[in-house]
Simulated scan of single mutants.
Amino acid sequence: MFFHQNRAIELLRQGSGNLQANFRDGQEEAISHIVTGTQRLLVIQKTGWGKSFVYFIATKLLREAGFGPTLLVSPLLALMRNQIVAAERMGLKAVTINSENTDNWEQAEQQIFSRQADIILISPERLANQDFVNRI
């Protein structure tokens, strides 16, 4: 797939709510790397650098190209809530499955199976649940 730089910066500005926003060092390269799918990528950055923007922009570009949803493992429930809001500002349909929202799991799973979900945020312990791994 081809990386669309102008669309990526448009999504950054939309997601951040800042029409003058520009990528931080390494963000655009990370997004391009993910979207073109040439190799695996490990991004280690400090809190506040904007890793979520990398995930969300890459997801949006891939979904617009017809690819499936992204699975994001997020260890902090408060961060997960913030990530959902940020993803939705970018026009992504985000669903979450974690220990805090067990009453909503069935609805989230329906959105995943019907291909409505763009990004699925889960807590790490979900990966230890074999039933979850098999179904989702």
Rank of each mutant, 00 (worst) to 15 (best):
K93A: 08
Q20K: 05
D131H: 10
E109G: 04
A86V: 15
R13V: 14
G48F: 14
S99M: 02
I57S: 03
S123D: 07
F56A: 09
M90P: 10
L121W: 00
T47W: 06
F23K: 05
H33D: 04
E88V: 11
E100P: 02
G26H: 04
K46Q: 15
D131C: 03
R89P: 01
D25G: 05
I57F: 02
E88H: 04
M1I: 08
S123H: 07
R89W: 05
R81A: 14
V43G: 13
P124C: 02
Q20E: 13
E100Q: 04
L42W: 06
G91C: 11
N6T: 13
Q20H: 12
Q110H: 01
Q5M: 09
K51C: 13
I57T: 15
E10K: 05
F56D: 11
Q5G: 09
T38A: 08
T102C: 03
Q5N: 09
E10Q: 09
L127E: 10
A86P: 03
Q45K: 10
S99W: 01
A21V: 13
H4Y: 06
L12C: 03
Q116R: 10
Q5K: 08
H4C: 11
I112P: 01
M1C: 11
P124S: 04
G68R: 07
A8E: 08
I31A: 11
L121I: 14
T70I: 11
N22L: 08
R13I: 13
R126C: 04
D131E: 15
N134S: 04
D118S: 07
Q14L: 14
H4Q: 12
T47H: 03
I120D: 06
F67V: 01
G17V: 13
N22I: 14
Q130H: 01
Q39D: 13
V73I: 15
R89A: 13
E28G: 06
A86M: 02
N101E: 06
D118R: 02
F2C: 09
N134T: 15
P75R: 03
S114N: 12
G66S: 07
H33V: 00
Q83V: 14
G17T: 10
P69D: 09
P124K: 00
L79H: 04
Q130T: 10
T96S: 09
A87Q: 00
K60T: 10
Q20I: 04
N82D: 15
R7T: 15
M90E: 10
G50R: 00
E10C: 03
P75W: 03
E10Y: 04
A78N: 07
F132A: 01
E29S: 05
A78F: 06
